[in-house]
């Protein structure tokens, strides 16, 4: 069962290059994510989504405020809060298989989970590229490989930073279903950044809407629909209209959403 995450008054200021002062990437973010919940974060480019995930992961320190995970203050990164990075982070000197193996060995799960590697490879549709190096893969293949490398490691909290951003719509929908299945199977807490309104509605129980400069929480929306969800249902459309309205800059969002 996943851990709860408390985000209490988190702000992040990046020091600027000159005296003008830095960039306020996050300004007093507050949110409580329940244990085992699936939450999406929606917001325009540059509103601090990645920054927030990195702080939750413990990779960066907040300028002020605190992150709690399972009631404990987050100070350092920990394999129990695994992060799928926005950019591809496969180690170029390891094959796809070795990348997954490395993740499992690093978290001491290799013995019990080595037989699952084949399943992860097939989930990512990369069986025939298992022994290829990352530079031999396409951008989308790398993203899938990055994703399964992180998912292969069982952790209480999974943080996903636009994990399906580089994929075509069909692959994307297939993997969305896999994410739902995995989440329900493991009951881990999932926090996913996305630019895709439909994806947020399809996957998550709640959507955190963020606004940019400075990054703030604009609203938090409940999506009380049962799983598996129907992308064509009336409720679904209702949520979609609602979110696009709330975002005001609906036009930009629609552009993003057709990636």
């Amino acid at each position: 069962m996943g851990a709860s995450i408390g985000i209490k008054g988190v702000s992040k200021v990046f020091a600027g290059h000159d005296e003008k002062g830095g960039v306020v990437a996050l300004d007093n973010i507050n949110a409580d994510i329940r244990s085992g919940e699936f939450v999406s974060i929606l917001g325009t480019s540059g509103c601090g989504k990645s920054t927030l995930l990195r702080i939750i992961a413990g990779l960066d320190k907040a300028t002020s405020g605190t992150i709690f995970c399972g009631g404990e203050t987050v100070i350092n990164p920990d394999p129990s809060r695994s992060l799928v990075f926005q950019e591809h982070t496969l180690f170029p000197w390891m094959t796809v298989r070795d990348n997954i193996k490395f993740a499992l060995k690093s978290t001491r799960q290799y013995k019990e989970k080595r037989h699952e590697i084949a399943e992860w490879l097939s989930l990512a549709d990369l069986e025939s590229f298992a022994d290829s190096y990352p530079h031999q893969l396409s951008g989308g293949m790398r993203q899938r490989a990055s994703l399964v490398r992180t998912l292969a490691v069982a952790s209480d909290v999974v943080l996903l930073d636009e994990p399906l951003g580089a994929l075509d719509n069909f692959t994307r929908m297939t993997l969305q279903d896999e994410l739902v299945r995995l989440w329900r199977e493991r009951r881990s807490t999932m926090v996913m950044v996305t630019h895709d309104v439909d994806e947020a509605i399809y996957l998550s129980q709640r959507v955190i809407l963020m606004s940019p400069r400075p990054g703030r929480v604009k609203n938090i929306l409940d999506i009380p629909m049962s799983y598996p969800r129907d992308r064509a249902s009336g409720d679904f459309m209702g949520f979609r209209v609602n979110i696009l309205k709330q975002l005001e800059f609906a036009k930009t969002m629609q552009e993003d959403y057709t990636i």
Binding site: A57, L59, N76, P77, D78, P79, R81, S82, L83, F85, E87, T89, F91, F102, A103, S106, T107, V153
Partner: peptide, 11 residues
């Protein structure tokens, strides 16, 4: 980014 992944995995 590679060091970040390593830290995230608890290496």
């Amino acid at each position: 980014k590679y060091l970040d992944v390593a830290r995230n995995l608890g290496c």
